[in-house]
């Protein structure tokens, strides 16, 4: 084991975050707060309750997910892509640190940031709407698990990407639309067929539903399916990363 190496990378990544706090924490919190303000306070008061929950409160877990999923991917992908881009990756590749330790350090730092972002966003949400949390420990556990999963996905994207545009493709063109359509603003029970069935193909629906359960004890899909998708969101990218390191894919020639 190389604990000093893990610590060095973790601290490096957290310091990078500290330098760009406006972009990586303040901006997403403000953006999400605008949703709380508009959909929660302003429009929310004219909307009927959703699954027995006040509309303004109902959208909070989903909006936190939206923010966490995109930021987790962007942060983790940038963390490994940037050294590749500048060439400083030589040092990582020549260091006595294993792929697993590398992943723990980068993904650990990115997931820490995602969890902090979520908690700050949640705290901000309480300024605009009333939020209760029925299962606080599960809320934290789900949040941490989902953060790690999407940071792993981001890390894999960072290894795969060959330019800055490719870094943005997945969070912007895949995750954001899927999250919007994954029941952030509505309960899937409220939409008509065939779209209800189509929505069930969206994996993010399961994450949003599970996360909302920890707040309000209401679900769109069975809880076990949410847990299964969470497990999948860790196992799939992890498998990709293991393969990438084994084959040296876009890391080593």
């Amino acid at each position: 084991m190389n604990p000093y190496g893990i610590k060095a990378i973790y601290r490096f990544e957290m310091a990078r975050w500290g330098r760009t706090l406006w972009q990586s924490l303040v901006a997403p919190v403000i953006t999400t707060s605008l949703y709380f303000l508009v959909f929660g306070s302003a429009i929310g008061s004219r909307m009927s309750d959703m699954a027995g929950v006040n509309y303004g409160s109902f959208i909070v877990p989903g909006l936190i997910m939206l923010s966490v999923l995109t930021q987790a991917i962007m942060n983790a992908s940038f963390g490994i892509y940037f050294p590749k881009f500048t060439g400083t990756i030589y040092e990582l590749l020549s260091a006595p640190i294993s792929p697993l330790e590398t992943v723990i350090a980068y993904v650990g730092a990115a997931a820490t940031k995602a969890v902090i972002l979520a908690l700050v966003t949640l705290a901000t949400a309480t300024l605009f709407v009333e939020v209760s949390i029925d299962h606080p420990l599960w809320m934290l556990a789900f949040l941490a698990t989902i953060s790690v999963g999407f940071c792993l996905l981001g890390f894999a994207i960072g290894i795969w990407a060959q330019n800055f545009e490719q870094l943005q493709v997945v969070p912007m063109l895949v995750v954001t639309p899927l999250t919007f359509l994954g029941g952030v603003f509505y309960s899937v029970a409220a939409i008509a067929e065939p779209w209800r069935t189509v929505t069930h193909l969206n994996p993010i629906l399961y994450l949003v539903s599970g996360y909302r359960w920890t707040f309000f004890n209401v679900i769109d899909v069975p809880l076990w399916t949410s847990v299964a998708v969470m497990a999948g969101s860790i196992i799939l990218p992890l498998t990709m990363i293991v393969w990438m390191f084994r084959s040296g894919y876009r890391l080593k020639s």
Binding site: Y4, A8, R11, G87, T88, E91, L92, A95
Partner: peptide, 23 residues
């Protein structure tokens, strides 16, 4: 190839840690 935004001290200390040596 260097990390443009890092200080000299930080980048050299980082290398030491990365190679498994205590601070």
């Amino acid at each position: 190839t260097t990390d443009a935004f890092e200080s000299v001290w930080a980048t050299v200390s980082f290398s030491r840690g990365l190679f498994g040596k205590p601070r």
